[in-house]
Nucleic acid binder design. Structure first.
Lengths: 248, 248
DNA sequence: TAACATTTGTCCGTATGTATA
DNA sequence: GTATACATACGGACAAATGTT
């Protein structure tokens, strides 16, 4: 399809990192299945037209990330596997979406605060006065970190959301305790950027990694906004799907 | 909100490039309006905790990209502007989506071929036999490149798609000529990755840049697939929206 | 067992790029 | 602009582990 082993020099991005990014991309795009043996270092070196040591730097970085696994005398193998798919629709529930793809999902509360809403947050939540509760969370699938999020709620509407989330590890469950039995996804805006320092720490990524940023508004059954959230997904572990069915 | 002027060292990404990426991101996120004067170099240097020479390297790179504009004796100014929003729904038409945000959009045919479909393409188009036509296209908004795409079509269904696209610069218009008056977006899968060499060339990006990859299936009014396409958007110039209305 | 090819791991030195003072 | 320290990339040589003949 679309594969060019081209390296740009003097670009501020080290050659070993460009190669590592390309290999990681190929793996997470499914071009090399889990457990498959990589071509030997010398072959990769000629393919990318670089020194073997440069290939070794790239492999070392990917080994540290857990994407590859090198064995002396035998070769280097693909350790990681396929991407998860996060399907966005009217009913978007984190654990439900992934339940068919992984054994277990978990949500952890990283921090929280009661704060004055910014114009953006107030507008998204349709608020004219009052405070908002902000919670920072991190989510894992089968104990692999896949996303971290910041959510804002109207403090008057769900005053106990912090405690409820900590107890349940789920916004859906926390909403139920606050009397919000159901809610719908009103809008989602999707972008992508380099992972920042926080992303690197929470998602266990290495610098230069990419995160998909989804900014969403959830509304109750009367159409009133109840949650405004931005979620950062590791682009190597997750893709977003829209529409009725997968085409792949 | 979420802004850390944090730099990761020894990551394979030069500090000047990390700073350039961050400034470019801030600009396209709308944090600095078009035409605004940048803070002086010394201030940026203290803000990022780096040497002034390093800031100069970052600014030089962004000037070369056209994101900033340096004026003799006056200072450095933001040349570029806000992100465009690509709203995905049942009726997704490239030029219609952007018509309210830009003056003019254009589609250019980069290349085309008649080929044996891969399993992925055949499955997406619901084909069991026959050849597919592949076209590579590039799209601009007000003469700025914002996306490039590869599309596949059933050759038996739209045999003249290449000529028709070249003449009209639009899939919608080319479909009309083939008797397909209307079509709907069935599914979209969204991911993000580093720009490859082709992306860099077509979208005029610099290495390390990020592209949003949207893989879509369009169906005719009878629900039969008519187009399978993967589009690469520059993540700095575009974001994807889903749902009824923007929340921002 | 032994010899051999293959592949990863480690060491040397050298030139250039990056970042600081 | 100059000087210094470190990261990056290259070239070569050899050691260590593995599998095969």
């Amino acid at each position: 399809m679309r594969s060019s082993h081209l390296i740009t020099r003097n670009s501020g991005v080290a050659v070993w990192r460009q190669i590592a990014d390309q290999i990681r991309g190929d793996i997470s795009a499914g071009k090399m299945a889990s457990g498959v043996r990589m071509p030997p270092e010398v072959e990769l070196a000629t393919r990318f037209s670089v020194n073997r040591h440069t290939i070794r730097s790239a492999i070392a970085a990917l080994t540290k990330e857990g994407v590859l696994r090198a064995e002396q005398g035998r070769g280097t193998f693909v350790a990681n596997a396929k991407k998860l798919t996060y399907r966005i629709g009217e009913r978007t529930r984190f654990s439900e979406i992934l339940s068919t793809q992984v054994r277990e999902t978990k949500g952890v509360l990283l921090g929280s605060s009661l704060e004055e809403p910014t114009a953006e947050v107030a507008s998204a939540l349709g608020m004219h006065s009052g405070m908002v509760i902000r919670i920072d969370t991190m989510h894992t699938a089968d104990n692999n970190p896949i996303s971290c999020a910041t959510s804002w709620f109207d403090a008057a509407r769900v005053p106990n959301i912090i405690e409820d989330y900590r107890a349940t590890g789920s916004v859906t469950a926390a909403f139920k305790r606050a009397g919000i039995d159901d809610y719908l996804r009103q809008s989602t805006i999707i972008g992508a950027r380099h992972a920042d320092a926080e992303d690197l720490r929470h998602l266990k990524l290495s610098p230069g990694a990419i995160v998909i940023v989804a900014t969403a508004v959830n509304v109750d059954m009367d159409g009133r906004p109840v949650e405004y959230a931005t979620t950062h997904f590791s682009a190597d572990r997750m893709e977003i799907a829209i529409g009725r069915q997968s085409s792949l």
